[in-house]
Design a protein around this nucleic acid. Structure first.
Length: 200
DNA sequence: GTTCTAGAAC
DNA sequence: GTTCTAGAAC
């Protein structure tokens, strides 16, 4: 009786109060992918290796630990052994592709929850590679080499990355070919140029 | 992370 | 007129 009318009083489109990611939210998609037989290419008691659902190159895998590791920041010094194991297992898989050049690393500010090591071939020949952000996430300092992450964790006891704002700045950087000085004006021009570096 | 699409860029 | 990018998505 203190209030007369209905109690609906919040601004319906207020975006200052963003809810946390829940189960089923897109950012939790890796947890589902880890259990998708169509994506899993290898597994053991410690890790799962899956095909990236939207590969940004001809070969693009993710190595995911089975224990819950939300992100790089949550890593403790003693978990560097796990990171070494993840990279080792990726390099074991790479033996199956003797002619393919891979890089192994982490996105500085990932969108998806649960730590995942990218193992990506350097052709970047894929219809899923569409945007400048896609390109820069693998071809600027936004892509942290696995070896550097492991070294940092062992020497400093934690993984030091960058602020989200610094990450955004890298993703907005002008396009540049990863193999030469060419700076294309847009993504279609980059994708056409990339074929010059591919020996089929 | 992707999809969709308005309008900027050409 | 077409190509391409970038911001909303309840």
């Amino acid at each position: 009786m203190a209030t007369g009318g209905p109690s609906k009083r919040s601004a319906p489109h207020d975006s200052s109060n963003v809810p946390p990611a829940k189960k089923g939210h897109w950012s939790q998609g890796l947890l589902a992918a880890m259990n998708d037989p169509n994506l899993v290419v290898a597994t053991d008691d410690r890790i799962v290796i899956i095909k990236d659902k939207y590969p940004k190159a001809r070969y693009h895998f993710l190595v995911i630990p089975k224990i819950n590791v939300p992100n790089l920041k949550s890593l403790k010094r003693e978990q560097s052994e796990l990171l070494r194991y993840m990279e080792n297992q990726a390099q074991m898989l790479a033996i199956n592709y003797p002619q393919v050049e891979f890089r192994y690393g982490y996105h500085a500010i990932p969108s998806m929850s649960q730590l995942h090591l990218h193992m990506i071939s350097q052709d970047f020949d894929s219809p899923c590679l569409k945007t400048k952000r896609h390109w820069n996430s693998f071809n600027t300092r936004y892509f942290l080499d696995s070896a550097d992450v492991i070294r940092c964790l062992e020497e400093r006891g934690m993984v030091v990355t960058m602020t989200p704002i610094a990450g955004e700045k890298l993703l907005e950087q002008p396009l540049k070919c990863h193999k030469c000085v060419y700076s294309p004006q847009n993504m279609p021009k980059l994708k056409q140029h990339l074929y010059k570096h591919i020996n089929n």
